[in-house]
Design a protein around this nucleic acid. Structure first.
Lengths: 202, 202, 202, 202
DNA sequence: AATGAATGAGACTTCATTCAT
DNA sequence: TATGAATGAAGTCTCATTCAT
């Protein structure tokens, strides 16, 4: 396949994925139909099935896309800072301050649903487990480094605090997705202070 | 309707709800069919439709059931203790220590999915919002009382901490549901300590 | 069976038939359910099935009832008059002047539907054919007698005019049933004049 | 959509409509199933539901088709003649002489049933009312013109006679549909003579 | 290569009839 | 005898996927 052709294919795939994300977000994975995606993406059904094996494959690809973007953003932020406290603080503020655009909101929503969906799909679960550990590792590493350089308390278990970091965000973001009145930003600020104060070597 | 008949009807409803919970948990709401529920509950299709208007009504009833049981358990625990610290601590330990039986796990799973599903159903959302505020109020009240009697720091906002309380659990329980390896119990212990230490007056 | 019991049975049957007529009229035979009839008649389902073999049997019984009442009314009117002209005229005016109560309207509606329905039920068709010929004979006889006693023109065929008599009414009543604006009464008056003038000897 | 595709679609729609007409005629609207229509038309269920929104929509479309064909035939006949008497006479003879093929018989049968069915569907009733008035207008106009040019008696009300015209046909055709022995043709001839003689200026 | 018409399995739901109480 | 809960066959409609053009 020539380069140009391959590029076209990638564009098409992206068009489909972006449309699918909106369809899945607005109707749910099951309720969204391939026709919805065809309409929304302006890519014909035949072409979609050339690009993706099935509706479920689109779902899975969306997960990859979400994951890639997720790590990219996280790493981008972390690279800007040097101390553990700055890194953690900036994640709270820069990435997760809740000023999400609709694309990001949809991504989160669809991702949460997919995670529960994957409960029944061993294969998907494995992929998600990997991503979970990777996500954990990133924060764990930041904390470990902070501990090693004396910034953070030695008494704390980096892994456990990394889990706590994400548990909070998962819960808070999901709540925000479902309940628009949820005071997400206020919570994030408070949690940041509590979290860092707890870890910090005063 | 006589008492005996009404009781029978309640039993049947319960049978269906319990079966539906398992079906929804093991396949997902959309993928689970009425035939699945018929098979699992040994209640005929016609009878199920006499008991419930639609598949979705079963889903909603399940939410009510879950909510009722949830508040019942929480209140039972809180009634056993007097100080705010004991109350909070016992919630972490007694209710949420993660020794969940399969019924409870299924309830959580189905409830999380329903919550995301309800994103697209205004009416369901209202009910969930009510429940959310009620759940919030329970913890908020415990914290407020602790603040008033000097047990907890006056500087903290009871509502914000109540939100943090639940955000953590939502995130942790969901993670536990999806990833069996997730060290839920260890996390809960740690979070309890951090949470209470943060709130407590020295 | 004792007399009292038998009478009770007849009463029950009547209750069911009257209710079924309203249900069939308001929803159509197919759309009306046995539960509708149960509700409307306050006769339990078990009892209805003791009284009638099936829903269709109720339909058929309704036809018998309609037919009996039809002939009774017609004969009552005819008995009051002596000349052919008076008899015909009075049928136009007394029986068919369109001041139908809702019971009669329902009877007509259900009867028309049943007639078309019976197209596919050989057995019912036979019964209807009999009734049709009987109905025809009544008018035919009136006309024949009028011809014989010189009241009406000898050149006319009594059977053909009898058919015309009923064809008009069938068409007019059906139209009236469907279209409330249809000027039924005006038409009946005019048709009476035309019909009788045509038959009458000067 | 290209012309060829659109044409194909029209053909398919027609295939389905013709099959549905036969199914509705032979079993009745309610008793006829979509599977019957699928089998009879050799158009798959999915395709039928692409072509028509629901079973009822097929019914309604059938009404439109019937109506269109009805007016086309009537107008074709009327266009061939000039005098009112000829026009009326030709309608009796050419259109309504009863030499109906099975397609026309089915159309009449289904149409009569639909008319009664529409009693409970306000929207359908409106459409039928329009058609009724249009049908009335055609005959009314013929008679009015005959009156104006002195062919027909001035004393008669064109509208009333137009109503009588159709009432007779409705009754006669319905009777013919149900009872094959009904002497429809003989009746039409007689009715024509009576009807025209009554109107004609000797 | 791209399209979208065609397919038909399978979903939810209804309701005439039966039968245990 | 009278009841109405229980049944499950059968209905309408949807939609992921295929394939001829």
């Amino acid at each position: 396949m020539s380069f140009a052709k391959n590029e076209h294919k990638q564009e098409q795939r992206n068009k489909v994925l972006i449309s699918a994300l909106e369809c899945f977000a607005s109707k749910g994975y099951d309720a969204a139909t391939m026709d919805d995606i065809v309409l929304h993406s302006s890519v014909s059904k035949g072409s979609i099935y050339k690009l993706f094996k099935s509706k479920e494959e689109i779902y899975i690809e969306l997960m990859y896309k979400y994951t890639d973007e997720f790590f990219e953003e996280i790493n981008l932020i972390l690279a800007k800072y040097t101390t553990a406290r700055e890194k953690l603080s900036s994640l709270f503020i820069e990435y997760l301050n809740g000023q999400f655009d609709s694309y990001k909101l949809n991504s989160f929503l669809v991702h949460f649903e997919l995670q529960l969906y994957s409960t029944r799909k061993e294969q998907m679960l494995k992929l998600l487990e990997e991503r979970r550990l990777k996500r954990l590792g990133i924060i764990s590493k930041v904390i470990s480094e902070g501990i090693q350089n004396g910034e953070l308390k030695q008494t704390h278990d980096a892994d456990v605090y990394a889990e706590m970091f994400w548990a909070f965000f998962d819960g808070a973001i999901e709540t925000k997705l479902v309940f628009p009145n949820f005071p997400y930003e206020k919570l994030v600020i408070e949690q940041r202070d509590v979290f860092i104060k707890n870890l910090a070597n005063n």
